[in-house]
Design a binder for these strands. Structure first.
Lengths: 229, 229
DNA sequence: TAGTGGTCTAGACCACGGC
DNA sequence: CCGTGGTCTAGACCACTAG
């Protein structure tokens, strides 16, 4: 025998794909499957749980396990450091801080972070370069009450993205990618034309107790976001 | 006691965040943790495995478990049916097939699918509408040898995206989002201006044995791709 | 080669929620 | 109510790999 959970998963997937288990249909319960396949229920559980997480199955107590009617698949996107993203392309990464100061918090940023107007924030604008050519430009607001040490971060040596990832790991957050025309300022930093179609990532991250940072990242034309499914 | 794996996970996360377990540092092995926390090793294993999958820990046999130096977080993006995507916005979805035929396979598409020039393919162009207004336009190539029934799919009643998801679940595939200027044809279908910044999704999916479909989906201006992390 | 995580087992109890 | 998945346990063996 020696059936592992991956074998059970493969067999279940085969039955789903061959329509032996049709979409929407209830499949045998864990105990029966374990008996049929000759392994422990825990092994079947592990396999079916993985398939449910991948979107192939829907499981509910008492109601049993069903094949997802329209398999909702989930793709994973790794959120790498910008530096790594550049190096993974085989290029050399560098960065330059454009400016760093503490202007009043604009209402849209304040709303995204959920902070009062008086909250202490630092704004840093940074240009990321790949082989010396503009890769992306970043407009970042950092909540100093959540990350007091950021005020002393040596941003000439380590970029803001990497400093924060290393020093202020976050709990959760949201990412929003959209296509937008480059603003005049984007165009100046990225050496492209105003109005060029560029990818803009807006990201807000939160720590256990308080918002950490809000960032708008404008990628130079030609950027691709790739996902595997 | 009654410590569950989620409790163990929470405790581990607390230690990571509090730097009790510093980045890059090796943490106690599973057996020791189980003894310390008063639960079975399997419970600790489940908790630490989940943290590793989420990017907080790096685990290797013999080398033990370490706190990830720069937590590489992964975000999940659900790949919904276009119809669902529209309905989730509270709008009414509809679609219209623009044309459907069997032209020769252009080299770029052929390369993406990894098919010979003679492979039987059907091309369908479709416009997706939200509340009657253009939402996205799709240029799809379907490998008929992998999905013979597609030739008879009633695409006036069910859109190509949904038909394929329901009738030809795929194994794996790639997604590629990029920002691009709308072509003249995109602009005509989407009622926007030529050159407007739009999001373009290129997706290729493969079945167990053969490529299934290659699709270019151009979203109307204003589309956002949102991810949670 | 020894220590670590990866996994399987058999059994048990529990929580949820259709019926 | 009671069947189902969710989880815990104690023990065991295995696979990998750093030292």
């Amino acid at each position: 025998m020696a059936l592992g959970w991956q074998d059970v998963q493969a067999e279940a997937l085969r039955r789903i794909r061959s329509r032996e288990w049709a979409p929407g249909e209830q499949i045998p319960n864990e105990a029966d499957l374990a008996r049929e396949l000759g392994c422990a229920r825990a092994t079947v559980n592990r396999a079916l749980r993985a398939l449910a997480e991948a979107g192939w199955l829907e499981r509910r107590r008492r109601a049993g396990t069903r094949v997802a009617p329209a398999p909702l698949r989930r793709a994973q996107v790794a959120i790498p450091l910008i530096r790594k993203e550049i190096e993974n392309r085989g290029q050399t990464a560098s960065h330059a801080v454009i400016d760093r100061n503490r202007p009043p918090l604009p209402p849209p940023i304040r709303a995204a972070l959920g902070l009062p107007a008086t909250a202490p924030v630092e704004r840093v604008r940074t240009l990321y370069l790949a082989d010396g050519r503009p890769f992306a430009c970043e407009d970042r607001w950092v909540h100093l009450a959540a990350v007091p040490d950021f005020a002393d971060a040596p941003l000439d040596r380590i970029d803001p993205n990497e400093w924060l990832v290393r020093n202020a790991p976050f709990d959760h957050g949201t990412l929003d990618y959209c296509a937008a025309p480059a603003t005049a300022e984007d165009a100046r930093h990225l050496s492209c034309e105003t109005g060029a179609a560029i990818m803009v990532l807006t990201r807000t991250t939160f720590g256990p107790a308080a918002p950490v940072t809000h960032v708008r990242l404008a990628y130079a034309p030609g950027y691709h976001l790739r996902l595997e499914i």
